[in-house]
Design a protein around this nucleic acid. Sequence first.
DNA 1: ACTCCGAATTGAACACGTTCGAAAAGGAGG
DNA 2: CCTCCTTTTCGAACGTGTTCAATTCGGAGT
Lengths: 221, 221
Amino acid sequence: MPSPTAKSEATRELLVSTALRLFRETGYEKTTMRAIAAAADVSTGSAYYYFASKDDLVHELYRSLQEEHRSLALPRLREGQNLGELLRIVLNTGIGVMGPYHDFGSNFISIAIKPSATTSPFGSESAVARARAISLFRQAVAMSRPQPPLAIRDDLPELLWYASMGITLFWVYDSSPDQVRTRRLIDQAAPLLSKLVILSRLPVVRKIVEDIVQLIRGTRQ
Amino acid sequence: MPSPTAKSEATRELLVSTALRLFRETGYEKTTMRAIAAAADVSTGSAYYYFASKDDLVHELYRSLQEEHRSLALPRLREGQNLGELLRIVLNTGIGVMGPYHDFGSNFISIAIKPSATTSPFGSESAVARARAISLFRQAVAMSRPQPPLAIRDDLPELLWYASMGITLFWVYDSSPDQVRTRRLIDQAAPLLSKLVILSRLPVVRKIVEDIVQLIRGTRQ
DNA sequence: ACTCCGAATTGAACACGTTCGAAAAGGAGG
DNA sequence: CCTCCTTTTCGAACGTGTTCAATTCGGAGT
């Protein structure tokens, strides 16, 4: 897309919406690039004019899910709730949004985790998207009463995001109906995480927590 | 492989060793099934007679690495060392073994994480391999002095394995020369984990740790 | 109206993973 | 040596993601 302007933007969006629909309806593997192009009434070559790869379209799904997660979760957060409750809401909303795509969650994760492309939530390329995801947790932390200890307040959102990645991984492997086991996990883990945060005030614990925070910061280069 | 016996076992092994060599030398994507078959002087069809898929050969690599890790790490463990030191050895040995394959670590992880096939370290299919990996940590825990608190001793190896998965993930994304940043991470994280274990003795902490252990046990169905 | 140039589109072609029907190899029993 | 069966091997063929040279489209400048 050399020029930023064009009404062929419509074609692009059509391709995205078509792809996401097919992903939802027929899964990842059955949704071939040819099928997407055909359903959008363009040639396969055209699809590749807008998207470098099939993974690129998955990346589009990733961003779309993230936006939906954000816009659904934010209004549900009430100022003054405790951190555990807020976490529960954020995490449950998250897996709710991903629900329709659970069938190919494996492929999703598998692609998302590749450090190669822009797709990876860890790679530097998608730092923006990641920061946006973390900011949702930052919002939850900011709203929570009582406030988490100052010592970790700044780093807590990122830590919580890591935790949410772990839960997402669990969700991917969760074959229970409607992923009910993941919901149970969230209901247990959310207050637990909250308790851990409170615990970090203890003098003995505090030192170690500071070490951990240092460690995490170190990993950011 | 309907019959367990045959000297065509040799063909199978030849294919494995050829595949691993090509993986090491030319990376994952450039190592095509045709190339493996050709290098082993068989047809592509024959390769598929022994291995259901290319991922299946990656699984073979996974098992091979695990065995090498085990046989290198075990002799390095000295009875009576503290847990932090033992962890450091196990983890560093692990990334040492994986080192030659770092270039396609991304593909490796990406494939390994798929819940579909036998490849996934989380899936039920590779429960055996996973148990074997965890047993290495169990060994380290058993050798460590002082002994970890009884309350968590049984679950600790699995927890440590999870931690090692996280470190492996970091390693995959580590583009520093010789993955030196991962080594630094391990040198810091190992004693930290050890301290966390000690901390779990504290009465206040203990309760939460028990909750966490319950949580983990719950995830095992 | 005409020219021109980049944006957009096309469908054929390529390499790859994988499948498959058929052929070869091997060996046990007569 | 022949027969019959299983194991093993083969290479052509299929469907897929992706690339590319060629073509069409659309609008800016004259």
